[in-house]
Simulated assay, not measured.
Amino acid sequence: MATFVMRGRQYLAALKAEKHVLAAHVLHWADEVRDPHRELGASLPDRSGATASELDVAVQLLESMAVDWNPKDYRDTFQERVRALIDAKRHNEVIEKAVPPPQSTASVDLMEALQATIEKARGARPSQSQTSQ
């Protein structure tokens, strides 16, 4: 289980190794899950399409893969921090700024790098001034 922030919102995800990659399956927070019976009521499909033995096999399969998991154990901490900052601002409290990310010490002059590339390319073939002499 993992959380990550994207586009100003924190998401809950289940990380899973699939073949040679690590996949993140985005989940819903507990307060985002709606009860389909309350939402859809009578428009839910009936269960007449599956036989009793097919349902038993499906239930056994799901139970064999099930683990104890409580979605309420996970909270949207990003939203909680944002709300805390808003409340602090509303009450005129001092808000500590986050530590800025460290600056890169290996600065590269883009013009020098481009010039070096041009000089290297000229070294590989004669320049216009060398061929006119």
Results as ranks from 00 to 15, higher is better:
residue 78 F to W: 10
residue 64 S to N: 11
residue 97 K to M: 07
residue 63 E to M: 05
residue 54 E to D: 09
residue 90 R to V: 12
residue 90 R to Q: 12
residue 64 S to Y: 06
residue 62 L to T: 01
residue 96 E to G: 03
residue 6 M to V: 13
residue 75 R to T: 08
residue 102 P to K: 09
residue 34 R to L: 12
residue 56 D to N: 08
residue 126 P to F: 12
residue 86 I to T: 07
residue 33 V to Y: 06
residue 50 A to C: 10
residue 5 V to W: 02
residue 56 D to H: 05
residue 44 L to R: 04
residue 85 L to P: 00
residue 79 Q to H: 07
residue 52 A to K: 08
residue 32 E to T: 05
residue 43 S to L: 07
residue 129 S to E: 15
residue 20 H to V: 00
residue 132 S to Q: 14
residue 133 Q to M: 04
residue 65 M to W: 07
residue 76 D to Q: 01
residue 88 A to E: 14
residue 12 L to M: 13
residue 53 S to C: 06
residue 79 Q to E: 12
residue 2 A to C: 10
residue 119 E to V: 10
residue 112 E to Q: 07
residue 81 R to I: 01
residue 64 S to V: 02
residue 3 T to N: 03
residue 95 I to P: 03
residue 12 L to D: 02
residue 3 T to P: 01
residue 61 L to G: 05
residue 33 V to R: 04
residue 3 T to K: 08
residue 1 M to C: 02
residue 84 A to E: 12
residue 92 N to K: 13
residue 37 H to S: 03
residue 90 R to N: 09
residue 3 T to C: 10
residue 51 T to A: 11
residue 67 V to M: 10
residue 83 R to W: 02
residue 108 V to H: 08
residue 77 T to I: 00
residue 126 P to I: 12
residue 12 L to S: 01
residue 54 E to K: 11
residue 124 A to R: 15
residue 41 G to D: 02
residue 79 Q to F: 04
residue 107 S to Q: 10
residue 90 R to K: 07
residue 97 K to G: 07
residue 93 E to W: 04
residue 94 V to M: 15
residue 51 T to L: 08
residue 103 Q to K: 15
residue 91 H to G: 06
residue 91 H to F: 07
residue 58 A to M: 13
residue 89 K to G: 05
residue 62 L to I: 06
residue 44 L to Q: 02
residue 104 S to N: 13
residue 80 E to H: 07
residue 120 K to S: 13
residue 27 L to C: 10
residue 9 R to A: 14
residue 121 A to P: 00
residue 112 E to Y: 04
residue 102 P to C: 06
residue 52 A to L: 13
residue 100 P to L: 11
residue 15 L to P: 01
residue 63 E to S: 06
residue 119 E to M: 08
residue 39 E to C: 04
residue 112 E to H: 02
residue 9 R to M: 12
residue 80 E to G: 12
residue 13 A to E: 01
residue 116 A to M: 08
residue 35 D to C: 07
residue 107 S to V: 14
residue 57 V to E: 08
residue 63 E to T: 05
residue 40 L to Y: 10
residue 111 M to A: 14
residue 41 G to Y: 02
residue 102 P to V: 04
residue 108 V to R: 14
residue 116 A to S: 09
residue 50 A to H: 07
residue 108 V to C: 05
residue 93 E to M: 10
residue 133 Q to V: 04
residue 40 L to C: 09
residue 5 V to D: 04
residue 97 K to H: 12
residue 98 A to H: 11
residue 13 A to L: 02
residue 18 E to G: 03
residue 8 G to S: 09
residue 125 R to V: 13
residue 128 Q to V: 15
residue 28 H to N: 09
residue 31 D to K: 06
residue 86 I to N: 10
residue 33 V to G: 06
residue 36 P to F: 02
residue 8 G to V: 14
residue 39 E to A: 12
residue 95 I to V: 15
residue 78 F to E: 02
residue 122 R to T: 00
residue 129 S to R: 09
residue 104 S to A: 11
residue 119 E to W: 04
residue 131 T to W: 09
residue 43 S to A: 13
residue 19 K to R: 14
residue 65 M to I: 02
residue 20 H to D: 15
residue 78 F to Q: 00
residue 46 D to P: 00
residue 26 V to E: 01
residue 130 Q to N: 06
residue 112 E to D: 13
residue 128 Q to S: 15
residue 55 L to S: 11
residue 16 K to A: 09
residue 24 A to S: 14
residue 132 S to A: 14
residue 23 A to S: 15
residue 33 V to A: 06
residue 79 Q to M: 08
residue 27 L to K: 03
residue 7 R to I: 08
residue 105 T to W: 09
residue 22 L to R: 03
residue 86 I to W: 05
residue 40 L to A: 03
